[in-house]
Design a protein around this nucleic acid. Structure first.
Lengths: 219, 219
DNA sequence: AATTTACTGTACCGGCGGTACGGTTTTCAC
DNA sequence: GTGAAAACCGTACCGCCGGTACAGTAAATT
């Protein structure tokens, strides 16, 4: 009972690392069970086939990411009452989180799965797309809160800006790997942060209007 | 001689589609040859193993993309003498290109390969990373040219902005697929374009300085 | 006509995903 | 402590796939 959950977790951990390094199709069950120190029968006791492994991996990844976002948005709100400042803090925390990973970001499961979508059934894809939608929603909500206080510069749709964060992260992971420089991801998140700052900075045309509330934290 | 090149090309086309849909590890040679209407012997006549197929796919992809960038940067320069305007035109052309693809962008081979890097030898990875570096270089050069005329706003490193384009494209492709909306990619490129505009737009602090040359094209 | 190119056909190996099923040990509830 | 459920192990097997080997052949090129 208890031990079963442990083994299951170990399988998932090993499988995730392999999937992120070689792709799902190239991840062999035999390899996973060898590393986990169990037999094939043991594996199929926990997952009835490879697709169920995929679903479990995706669920685990989504829940983990949800927790991270919960935490980092919460801390952002704790450190400032101003929506812009707290969002900037959140972004900085996210950048630090990514930068502190010793070997770079291990990879985004969503990205690997969307690039191998023909391998999975609908349920797996639905979990992924629902998660992406919810994460984008968090960022859009944060941007909307800011826009209620600070007038945004024209020319950019806030929905697109929200999605841009996800793009920058997924793209940043790919670039970090492709260029062999783990710091690219952190820098890209900080670049996105600068975009948010620019977006809500008073434009030239606004110079004579009463200035917005002064910044508290986040340099 | 002539016919051999045709067959080779057909194999590459079929393999690329499969790799982008299922990943390289899950792309079976048997499937490819079945669709191409040749035998396994015929396949191994053209590629001595799967890794050589990967290398050929990567080379083909890189060359194709180089041509596209050549074309789109050239047209941008043709349509305006101003470096900012011509870059904005180039970005708009790229966005249109991506938006006109009927079934959305088929996928970025660089992205699939970096997420399956353990499957390939160094030569393949080197081709990919050299290509990414050269593409980022194009964008950084364009930004430097602009910065020589228009003062950039502080807070963003131009190298990071250049890399951001690649991130937005690769991330945009993933988001387009994940959300099931092919237009996301186009919108993300246009959002990046807006970032460039903001970056070089006169800031509030510059309002009293003589204004920069007026825009010619690219709304 | 000779040679090279571009394949086909056949046979084979080992690894892998997956199934089936019977047996065994560990854990927990009572 | 015992019984039942949980958590595995062992073995045997199937078909697909990557890859090798090698002999043969039709078509294009020289």
């Amino acid at each position: 009972m208890r031990k079963g959950a442990e083994t299951r977790e170990r399988i998932l951990e090993i499988a995730e690392a392999s999937v992120l390094a070689k792709g799902f199709g190239a991840t062999s069950i035999e390899e996973v069970i060898a590393e986990a120190g169990i037999t094939k029968s043991g594996f199929f006791y926990h997952f009835k086939d490879k697709n169920e492994l995929a679903r479990a991996l995706m669920l685990r990844y989504v829940e983990e990411n949800d927790r991270i976002f919960d935490d980092v948005f919460h801390r952002g709100r704790q450190l400032s009452d101003d929506p812009l400042q707290s969002f900037l803090i959140t972004l900085k925390l996210l950048a630090e989180l990514m930068g502190d990973l010793p070997n770079g970001h291990p990879g985004c499961l969503i990205a690997t799965f969307t690039y191998q979508e023909r391998l999975f059934d609908r349920t797996v894809r639905d979990i992924a797309s629902d998660a992406v939608r919810s994460w984008n929603g968090r960022f859009r909500d944060a941007l909307n809160e800011i826009a209620a206080v600070y007038p945004a510069r024209k020319g950019m749709d806030l929905d697109d800006v929200a999605i841009m964060f996800s793009c920058v992260v997924d793209g940043g992971i790919i670039m970090s790997r492709g260029l062999g420089d783990p710091r690219v991801l952190e820098r890209q998140i900080l670049a996105f942060r600068s975009v948010v700052k620019m977006l809500f900075a008073p434009a030239a045309s606004d110079i004579m209007l009463p200035s917005a509330p002064t910044a508290i934290a986040a340099e």
